[in-house]
């Protein structure tokens, strides 16, 4: 797939950045009185993987179903290749595909028959042997789908989605049920898709999956995007943590003040522990500066910082904090 130069005058994106293939603006979806999606916006460009994370019921699948064309937005705009995807119009349906949360396979067909059917229904399908090799099911091709394991069915489902050469691919928890080896192989396949210019929307409960694959990600909670950005932006917004055992001769009030950092003191094992959370400053250097300042302070007091720990944020930290309902974690 080729990339197209951005010709929109208003856009501040560099010329080499392709136009977004998927555009979602202020999407809202209601089920009766319950608002499942509350003003979600994001773009996905060719060759980019956007991960939508969140707790169960956060609104991820409803968002994907709207993009797939199964739901009309209650308000807001959704565009895929510049078109409203509702009802899968021509010009959208031939160029998109999806791995659904369930398999959606015809259990009474064989693996070969499933691929043959999908090939005969598609405009420009990939070769069946190539797909079987790609998803590692060549030796299972004669089996009925119902004889496959859960992970094998997931792989066949992914293969069927790739068979139509989609330019936009929605992956709704694609590796659920796979063993670790198959999961890693799937990650490799998805990385290759990105390299080929496919725009991918991924939802997953495996945060490692998002960390490895996502160019940008959003964490949804109760229908809203609470955190959004690149991985480093999201982790940067959460902060680095420096913790140590407070020296016995130091009172809490005497702990040093560090610019751009909050300090919290907790009692554990009848001793005081200080934790500095540094959110401001350059993500690459801020932990270093904080530790240097604390070391200098310790040296002035003629002591050492025992049990010194420096820890960057993990996606899991951010996810859990969002899931707990922290509302102040809106990423940059």
């Amino acid at each position: 797939m080729t990339t197209t130069a951005n010709t929109t005058a208003e856009s501040s994106a560099p010329l080499s950045t392709p136009e977004p293939t998927v555009v979602v603006r202020d999407l809202r979806q209601r089920y009766g009185d319950f608002e499942a999606v509350r003003g979600v916006s994001f773009d996905i460009r060719p060759g980019e993987l956007f991960a939508l994370l969140g707790t169960n019921g956060a609104g991820k699948t409803t968002t994907i179903e709207t993009l797939e064309g199964f739901r009309r937005p209650d308000s807001g705009t959704v565009r895929v290749f510049g078109q409203d995807p509702y009802g899968q119009p021509t010009g959208v349906r031939e160029r998109t595909n999806a791995v659904l949360q369930g398999n959606g396979l015809m259990e009474d067909l064989s693996v070969d028959e499933s691929l043959s059917l999908a090939r005969d229904l598609a405009a420009d399908p990939r070769d069946a042997d190539e797909i079987l090799t790609l998803v590692g099911l060549t030796d299972k091709r004669r089996l009925r789908v119902r004889q496959l394991s859960g992970g094998q069915k997931r792989r066949l489902d992914l293969g069927l989605a790739l068979l139509t050469r989609p330019e936009v691919l929605y992956l709704d928890e694609p590796t659920t049920g796979m063993d670790p080896e198959a999961r890693h192989e799937t990650w490799r396949i998805i990385s290759d898709l990105k390299r080929d210019g496919v725009a991918v929307l991924l939802t997953t409960h495996y945060l490692e999956e998002a960390e490895r694959l996502a160019d940008r990600l959003a964490i949804m909670h109760r229908g809203e995007v609470r955190v959004e950005g690149t991985l480093s932006e999201v982790l940067g917004g959460w902060g680095d943590r420096v913790s140590f055992l407070v020296p016995s001769d130091v009172r809490t009030a005497d702990l040093p003040h560090l610019d751009g950092a909050d300090v919290e003191v907790q009692t554990r094992d009848q001793r005081l522990w200080a934790t500095y959370t540094i959110r401001a400053g350059d993500v690459a250097d801020r932990a270093h500066h904080a530790v240097a300042a604390l070391m200098a302070w310790a040296a002035d007091h003629g002591g050492a910082l025992h049990h010194l720990q420096v820890r960057g944020a993990s996606l899991e930290d951010v996810f859990l904090e969002v899931a707990d309902g922290a509302a102040d974690l809106v990423g940059e």
Partner: peptide, 12 residues
């Protein structure tokens, strides 16, 4: 079983 949805998202 999501079979119908699978067909639709494949462009059928």
């Amino acid at each position: 079983a999501l079979v119908l949805k699978r067909l639709r998202v494949s462009g059928v």
